[in-house]
């Protein structure tokens, strides 16, 4: 039971990361690799703000704002101009890779490549039946569920959420109807950056952080998006949840050595046998071709 609960909690974090990736990928088709660097950067922002004397809540808030700004900067400086020139997947992917490298190296240059920790002392634990939960795990559960619920409420019930779904569905038609596509793209990048920043801070409190740690988490997010389904905003959450539990089961019952290989075997199977993932949206052939 403990293994399943631990896996589910990790799965919640992967779900948030997967959703953050999908949030940019689905409406813009940008493969936002730089999210890995933003994941790595957010705890460093918090650490820097703590070091200059900010209180913990203000430092966390400041880190979130900076993570959001960094993601917006990616869109403003790179992806928006490339999209204006009708750049391909390759152009976006390679540019995002470039941004990733720059941010990670800047972090390494400033803070070194070794592991850092925010949490001081031992994490207090609580017992729920036979299951032991740390304070950080409670933070993860609360934070991730809060983020997911807030996002789906925004997506389902607000005017901007409706526009956003329209952007993911058919950006050309939305533009022809007079909506500001560029502004909605900024919303996608901003919200995505904030989500990744929040997830990064939760993970950093648990296991620490280092400049090269973001790529691994981003890969899990992408795998979650592929498993769950790349055509919807629900898919990555389901994929993340399944992945979290599966990885923890493999770690417990087989070995932590082969956990990554198992993850990517699952990815390979999905890519070859069910590339649209678990959640597949039925659509007319002409609609699929248009998108």
């Amino acid at each position: 039971m403990q293994v399943i609960v631990n896996g589910a909690i990790n799965g919640l974090v992967i779900a948030v990361l997967g959703l953050a990736f999908q949030l940019v990928y689905l409406p813009t088709k940008v493969f936002h690799v730089a999210l890995g660097a933003i994941f790595a950067a957010a705890p460093f922002f918090a650490l820097a703000l703590l070091n200059i004397g900010w209180s913990v809540p203000m430092a966390l808030l400041g880190a979130l704002v900076l993570a959001t700004a960094l993601s917006l900067l990616c869109e403003w400086s790179t992806h928006a101009p490339i999209s204006r020139h009708r750049g391909s997947f390759t152009a976006h992917f390679v540019s995002s890779l470039g941004i990733y490298i720059i941010i990670v190296q800047a972090l390494t240059l400033n803070w070194g490549a070794d592991l850092k920790v925010i949490r001081q002392g031992i994490d207090p634990v609580t017992f729920v039946g036979d299951v032991v939960l740390t304070a950080t795990q409670w933070w993860k559960v609360g934070g991730c569920i809060g983020i997911l619920v807030a996002f789906y409420l925004w997506l389902r019930f607000t005017r901007m959420g409706l526009q956003f779904r329209g952007l993911a569905d058919n950006p050309n038609e939305l533009a022809l109807r007079g909506y500001n596509i560029a502004w909605l793209r900024y919303v996608a990048f901003g919200v995505s950056g904030a989500m990744v920043g929040a997830a990064a801070l939760m993970v950093a409190r648990d296991t620490g952080f280092f400049p090269h740690g973001g790529l691994q988490e981003l890969m899990l997010a992408i795998v979650a998006a592929i498993i769950g389904g790349r055509q919807s905003f629900v898919g990555p959450v389901i994929g993340g949840f399944i992945l979290g539990i599966a990885r923890m089961e493999i770690e417990w019952y087989i070995s932590s050595r082969w956990i990554d290989i198992a993850t990517f075997v699952v990815l390979t199977l999905f890519l070859l046998l069910r590339p649209n993932g678990i959640i597949v949206r039925k659509a007319r052939l002409e609609a699929e071709q248009a998108s």
């Binding site: 750049g87 540019s95 490298i101 720059i102 190296q105 800047a106």
Partner: peptide, 12 residues
């Protein structure tokens, strides 16, 4: 970092 910058500049 220079390499990352070159990637962005080249794509643009």
């Amino acid at each position: 970092m220079v390499y990352g910058l070159l990637l962005i500049v080249m794509m643009r």
